[in-house]
Amino acid sequence: MSVMTEKTGDAVLPPRPDNGTELLDVPDGWEAREVEQFLYREARLADENDYDGWEALWTDDAIYWVPVDGEGDHPRATVSIIFDNRNRISTRMKQVKTGKRYAQAPPSNLRRIIGNVELLGGRANAEGGVDIEIGANVLAFESRPRGNTLWGGRTTYRLRRVDGQIRLAYKKVVLVDNEQAVPTLGFLI
């Protein structure tokens, strides 16, 4: 005889941050070239461990997400490698800047390639505007005393213009090997 049970106690969750709202058309006023230049700058700041410069790219409603198991389950109901809001990004940066975040002290030597950049569409944001959504591939080479690690993934970004500057509102990195055990990820992927 089959047992009838229903999963109970699921708290009400907000829509998933990645696909919980409709993908709109690419908003007006964006050039592929300037988008790419922004992504390359973000990559360089991360590669060079310029924590202040990197943190300054983010909007106040930032989401920085590195799931496990492919695209991941809902990040408020299941664990992720990283799921930071603006506050937690700030904490992460303060920690690493103490110089005693041992997983990044000394910092990793890093270089990454961002490629296959595509303008995918737009997503409505909480401020009533529409962020541009961009997909890209990333391949990062990390060197630490423990050895070298090659990190590959697909990154989805959302960008917004704030006071004439391009800012980063959302970044999700789906690591190619996120269904396996991965080593310490101390740097900014």
Binding site: A11, R76, T78, S80, T91, A103, T184, L185, G186
Partner: peptide
């Protein structure tokens, strides 16, 4: 439960602000 998920993400795993340092 959601708080425990959020705190765990912050603390443990490959990028955790506690466990990445233990693992180092």
């Amino acid at each position: 439960n959601q708080r425990m998920v959020s705190q765990s993400i912050g603390s443990v795993g490959p990028a955790g602000m506690l466990l990445a340092d233990d693992t180092e």
